[in-house]
Simulated scan of single mutants.
Amino acid sequence: MKIKIFILLVFSFVFHSAISQNDSLKSTAYMSIKKYRERHKAPLTQKDSINFLYKENDTLVLLENYKLPEGVIVPYEYKDSTFLHYYTKIAFRKQGIDSLDNKEMMKYWKKPIKIYFSNSVSNKVKKDFISFTKQITNNVDSLSISKVNKLEDSNYIIYYKDDYEYEKNLKEKVMSDYYIAWKKNIIYTGSIKINTDNLYNDKLILSQLKVLFLQSLGYFKLINDFTCENYFSNCYSDEKKLTKLDLEILKYHYSYGICKGTTLKTFLQQHKESSKLFLEKGLKSRFIHKQ
């Protein structure tokens, strides 16, 4: 039996379409005539007009021989405007309404994070830090973090100021800091360098380490909107804890119910269209994630 659903396909473009879909994923797809004219140079023909579909004051154009791209189809994950206000400031480093903000892109880890600790890092710091990362992985399905014993097996290094300089981009840093590198917005390596001159015990080291690590999970920006106990709060406290809000932000960032690696402008456009469809019609858009 054929089932009619609505789907929002997200790749390098976004459009609404009506899909007739059976179990083998053969489908009949329609695109809004406005979107069709934006994306196709060839004019519509009489044959095209015969297959028009009229729905809710909109004209839909049949896409001939349409086939869903390969990938995992995941329903859109709705979030309210308050949550998204915080999330865009953190994940897209949004400053305000400046147009430059719209070009900022989301960064994320796709492969498992494998951490190597230098010999200077105490066993207590290692143990407590790995316990902290387990709190994250237990709550965020698509994020894997583990400790490795060999440098060559790692893609993430944690070391102290007087150790071997594992990351040249941190060499001139006076304060504790992190460095990550990415390609096509996918983070593939990371490092944290801790300056122990002003962190004189394991508790202070661990506190700084956790904050820097959390930032490195998405090139996240700390903001002034939260109380100091939150890790995403831009204020100092050695009593921070992974709050429900911290975890919700991480879970959303690594959720497949949003499109990965987009610009802020694209993210906001996708949410606007998808949330409108959900709130007004009770229909969930779909995102197709290529493998």
Rank of each mutant, 00 (worst) to 15 (best):
K168S: 15
D246R: 11
L245N: 04
H85Q: 14
P75G: 04
L247G: 06
N185C: 13
V148R: 05
L8P: 00
I130L: 15
Y66M: 04
D162G: 05
L60V: 01
M175D: 04
Q95S: 13
A18Y: 09
L170A: 10
I73F: 12
N139P: 02
L264E: 11
Q291V: 06
S122L: 07
L212V: 07
G96Y: 04
G257H: 06
K4R: 09
I90K: 02
G257T: 10
S285Y: 00
F11N: 06
K150T: 03
S99T: 15
I3N: 12
K4N: 11
D197S: 12
R39W: 14
L204Y: 13
M175R: 08
Y254A: 08
Q269G: 01
K290I: 06
V74N: 08
E56M: 10
E165G: 00
I90A: 05
S120Y: 05
S154A: 15
S20V: 06
N169Q: 11
F6G: 01
N201K: 10
W182K: 08
T88P: 00
K168W: 10
Y254S: 03
S24D: 14
Y54L: 07
L242P: 02
Q291D: 13
F129E: 07
F278G: 01
N102R: 13
S237A: 09
Q46H: 10
I192H: 10
R39N: 15
F287M: 12
K67Y: 04
F15N: 12
L8F: 05
Y160H: 06
L245F: 14
Y200R: 15
T262D: 14
I136K: 04
S144A: 08
T82W: 12
S237N: 02
L279V: 12
D202F: 08
A42L: 08
K244S: 13
G71N: 00
Q46K: 11
K183T: 14
S255L: 05
N198M: 09
S27L: 01
L250T: 02
K244W: 04
I3E: 14
L242I: 08
D153G: 04
N138I: 11
T45Q: 03
R37I: 12
E104T: 09
Y156R: 04
D238I: 14
D98R: 07
Y30A: 00
T227P: 02
Y54F: 10
V125M: 07
I73N: 05
K251M: 08
L209N: 08
Y36D: 00
Y87F: 15
L217F: 09
L143I: 11
T262F: 09
E165Y: 02
Y116I: 07
L84D: 09
I90R: 00
L204G: 03
Y87R: 01
K161W: 10
I130M: 15
M175C: 01
F132R: 01
L222P: 00
Y86F: 09
C228V: 13
I7Y: 05
Y231A: 05
V72L: 14
I90E: 05
S32W: 06
M175L: 06
F15H: 13
N57S: 09
R286D: 13
K55T: 06
Y179R: 05
K150G: 01
N169Y: 12
G71Q: 00
Y219E: 07
G190T: 03
I158C: 01
I180W: 01
W182C: 04
D163C: 07
S81C: 07
T263L: 14
N65V: 02
Q135N: 15
I73P: 03
T59G: 02
S275D: 15
T28H: 03
E229D: 15
Y236P: 02
L143E: 01
